[in-house]
Design a protein around this nucleic acid. Sequence first.
DNA 1: TAAGAATACGAAAACGGTTAAGTGAACTAA
DNA 2: TTAGTTCACTTAACCGTTTTCGTATTCTTA
Lengths: 338, 338
Amino acid sequence: MVSMKDISIACGVSVATVSKALNDHNDIGAETKKYIKKVADEMGYLPNSMAKALKTNRTYNIGVLFAEEAYSGLTHDYYAFVLDSFKNTVEEKGYDITFINSAKARSERISYLEHCRSRGFDGIAIVCADFYSPEIMQLVRGNIPTVTLDHIFNNVSAVMSNNVQGMQDLLTYIFEKGHRRIAYIHGADSAVTQSRLSSFYRTAAQLGLEIPDEYISMAPYRDTTAAYKETMRLLDLKNRPTCILYPDDFAAFGGINAIKERGLQIPKDISVAGYDGIRIARHIEPTLTSLAQNTQKLGQKAGEKLISLIEHPKTTLIERILVDGHVYEGNSVADLNA
Amino acid sequence: MVSMKDISIACGVSVATVSKALNDHNDIGAETKKYIKKVADEMGYLPNSMAKALKTNRTYNIGVLFAEEAYSGLTHDYYAFVLDSFKNTVEEKGYDITFINSAKARSERISYLEHCRSRGFDGIAIVCADFYSPEIMQLVRGNIPTVTLDHIFNNVSAVMSNNVQGMQDLLTYIFEKGHRRIAYIHGADSAVTQSRLSSFYRTAAQLGLEIPDEYISMAPYRDTTAAYKETMRLLDLKNRPTCILYPDDFAAFGGINAIKERGLQIPKDISVAGYDGIRIARHIEPTLTSLAQNTQKLGQKAGEKLISLIEHPKTTLIERILVDGHVYEGNSVADLNA
DNA sequence: TAAGAATACGAAAACGGTTAAGTGAACTAA
DNA sequence: TTAGTTCACTTAACCGTTTTCGTATTCTTA
C-alpha cells in the first residue's frame, strides 16, 4: 500500500504537506497542491482509514444492531427493507455500516456497547432487538449517538412507523367498505401492539363501531399457527366477524389457510387484512389488503437523523419521528356497499 | 476511553508490559499478568481496534458485497438467509462484517476495490452482484482473500449451491410421483440457469422422459408476471403438462395465480414446483414443493473458507464447494400413482 | 528601505497499540 | 567464582495519519 510517505518522497515534500494538500488546506500553494494530487493519483494512493480514525476519532462507520434470533432480523422482509434504505442513505454520506455483535471469539464474550466502543463507531442504529434486555439498556446509555427504530428510550432519537395513523386508516378503510363486525387479532404485547390496539379501539369508537370482547385476541407476530387457531375460533362464533385484522401479513397467511380450510372464500364470504405490506402478499391470491409501512422512508429518516446527531451534536435535537404508512389495497376486503 | 497508557500508569509498569500481559505473552510474570488484567478490567479497558489494526495490518473486518439493486440483495429471502448464516459464522471467529460500497460522498466515487483497501478488510465475500461488471472483475483480482457465492472466477474460492443435484432430485421426485409430462420455465440466462437446465435435460434423458420443446421456456427470476404469462401459454397447449417447474418460488406464485384464474386446482388438476424453498411458501396453500437451498450451510461454508484463506493463506486451497439442497415436500405436486 | 504581514512549507508530536532488541537481577552449572 | 542462562520487564521504533508550531521567503506599505 502506498502511503503519504511514499508520495512525499516522490514529490520531494514533507508528509505534512502531502496531508494538507490532499485535504485541501489553504496553506499549500496551488501548484504544489495540484502536483501532489496528481502524483497521489498516479501512485494509486488510498487513505488508510484506520490511521485516519486513530488520529481523528472518527471512523465513518456506523454500527447496526439486528436481533440475533433467526426469522426476525435480516431475514424478515420489513427489517431487511428498512436496513437497505438506511444503508443507502448513510453510504451516500460517506459512512459504512457494520453489524454490532457480542461474539468476540478469542476471549470471553463482550457486550454490545463494548463492541461499539472498541470499533469506535461514530453512531449506532438499533433496528430490531430485545429492547428490554440489560445489554440494550447499557448500549443506549453508552453516550454514542444513537437512533432506534420502533422503540422509544429516554433521550434517544427514535424513528417510528405511525401505528396510530396506520391502524386508523386501515380500520376506516374497512369501515368505509361497509364492514361493521370487525375482529382484530393483535400481536404479543409491546409498545407497537399497544399503539395499534388503542388506535383500533379509539377509531372504532369514533366510527360508532361496537367491538365485542370476543373479537379481540392475541397471536404472536409472524406466528401462522397461532393465527390459524384464533381464526378458527372466530369462525366458530355465532355472530362471526365480516373482516379479520391480523398482527402482520405473515400471520394473515395462517388465517387465510384456516378460512380456506373451512371452505370459505375471500373476500366473498369473509374479508381479511394484514399489516406491513410485505412484497409477497401482493403477488398471491387473494392479494392482501394491508397497511403498508413506508420502509424506505423509515430507513432514510433514521439514517439522516443519526448522521445529524453525529455531525451536529449540539444543534440536533433528540426527537421522535413518525412515518406514516398507507393502505395497500389488495382484493382481500370485500366492498359490502356494492 | 482508557488506554494501555492509563493502565501502565495505574500499575506502575510500561505500556509494553501491559500489552504483553493482556495478550498473554509468556515473558511476563504470572503475578504481574494477573494484576494487570485485573486493573484493566476494573478500569474498563477496551482495545482500540483502529490502533491495533494500524500496527498489525489485521482489521478482523470482512467486507460483504451485495447488489445495490432493490429486490435482489438484502431484501431477497435467499440472500438474506445466506448472509445471516455467513454473519453468524464469522462473528463466532471474532470477525465483523461491513458492507462494501462505492459511495464515498466527500470526494468522487471510489471503486469497490478501493473501498476495501482503504478499509483494510481482511477478506471479502461477494454474495450477489453483477459478476460481469468491470468493477467486480477488478475486485476479485485485487489480491484480497475472497470467496464468491454462486459464481465461479478463476483463482477465487466459490461456494455454490449444487444446481445439478438439485434439479436432478427435484425432477426425479416429480417423476416418481408419476408425472411424465413435465414443463420447465427456467430463469434468465446465467451460469446457474445453465446448470439447472442441462441437469433437467440430462435427468429427463436418464428417466426416459420425452420433453417437447414447447414445454421449455423462459421467465426471468422473481418475475411473477412473466411466469403468469408463460403458465397461461402452457395451459393452452393441446397436450398440456401435468407439472410445471418454475425458476424460483416467487415466480411460481405468478404461475399459481394463472392456474387458479383458469379455475384449475393444485395439485388435483395440475402440479407445480418451485426452487429455493423460501419460508413463506411453506405457509400458504398450497404449500409449495420446492428445491430448498441449504442457505445455512452455504453461508457457513463461505465463512469458514474465507477465514481459512485469511488465516492460513499458504495451506488453504482455492476450491469450489458444492452445497446440496433437498426437496421440500409441500402439497403442490400430486401423486399420480395413487 | 525597513518593519510587519502574508504565503508556503517543514519538523515533530500525537493517536493507541505491537514487538524486536536490550538490560538488570537472579539462577544455574562447571 | 564466574560465565552463561533464564526471567521479567523496559526502551524505542513503528504503523499512517493529522495538526500545531515554527520558519524562511516573498510581498506590502509607510
